[in-house]
Computed example of a mutant assay.
Amino acid sequence: MAPPISSNDLLRIFNRLDKNGDGLICVQELKWLLDTIGIQLTMEELESFLEKPSLDFDEFLIFYESMSKQNKGECKGGLVDEHEDEDEDVEIVYMAFKVFDVNGDGFISCEELENVLSRLELWDANRSEVDCRSMIRAYDTNLDGKLDFEEFMNMMLFTN
């Protein structure tokens, strides 16, 4: 199954956070990103977790993977418990869904999708609303113009 955020998207996020172009993002920039997507950590917790003042892209990827797998079940008897792996995927997608469902109504509208992508600086301001609607339409199985959790999960877990 594909991760909720692709490596290419992670690189774009990293490059946007790296304002001075030195190939590093500092703890403050990382905290801003986490706050933006709804992950609440204190600066002290983040500094303690990272044990360094800044991250290069490879370290950023490791940080992302560790945050994504923070609650993942351990291997049992040398074999991965696939049920726990699926539960973890659903939990990660649900956390992402809550970030996109800005008004908490259980659906992601075009406006909410554009809002969150803009906050993450992943939305090109020159794109038209039609692009956003076509993104939703591709996974909107009940054709109501918005994504419910199941539709969002299908989009996140079954696309490359």
Rank of each mutant, 00 (worst) to 15 (best):
L79W: 08
K76I: 15
C26S: 12
L143F: 09
I108V: 00
R127W: 14
S48F: 05
I92N: 13
C132H: 12
G38A: 06
I108H: 02
E44T: 05
F100K: 04
N71Y: 11
L41Q: 00
L55I: 03
D144T: 06
F107H: 08
C75T: 14
N115D: 08
Q70K: 14
E91R: 15
G78T: 08
K19P: 09
D101E: 00
L17G: 06
I136T: 04
S118Q: 02
F60W: 06
S109E: 00
E121S: 08
K19C: 09
E84V: 09
N103W: 05
L17H: 04
G104T: 00
G77Y: 05
K76S: 12
M43P: 03
S66K: 14
K98Y: 12
S48T: 09
T141M: 10
N103Q: 06
T36Y: 10
R133I: 10
E91K: 15
Y94H: 13
I25H: 02
S68F: 13
L30W: 02
G23H: 02
I25P: 04
K98M: 13
E47H: 02
L113Y: 00
K52D: 07
S66Q: 10
L33A: 09
R119P: 05
I39W: 10
S128M: 05
Q40C: 12
H83N: 12
L122W: 01
V27H: 03
W123I: 02
L17C: 04
V99C: 15
E29K: 08
V130H: 07
R127C: 05
N142D: 10
N126T: 15
G23Y: 04
I39D: 09
M43D: 09
S68A: 14
L120Q: 00
D85C: 09
L55F: 02
L120P: 04
L46F: 05
D87N: 12
L55G: 01
K98I: 12
G145V: 02
F60V: 03
E111L: 13
D22R: 02
D144K: 07
S134K: 14
N126A: 15
S128A: 06
E111N: 15
S109T: 11
L41E: 00
Y139V: 06
S109M: 05
E51K: 15
D85T: 15
V80W: 10
E86Q: 11
M95T: 14
E44S: 12
D35L: 09
M43W: 06
L33I: 09
E91Y: 14
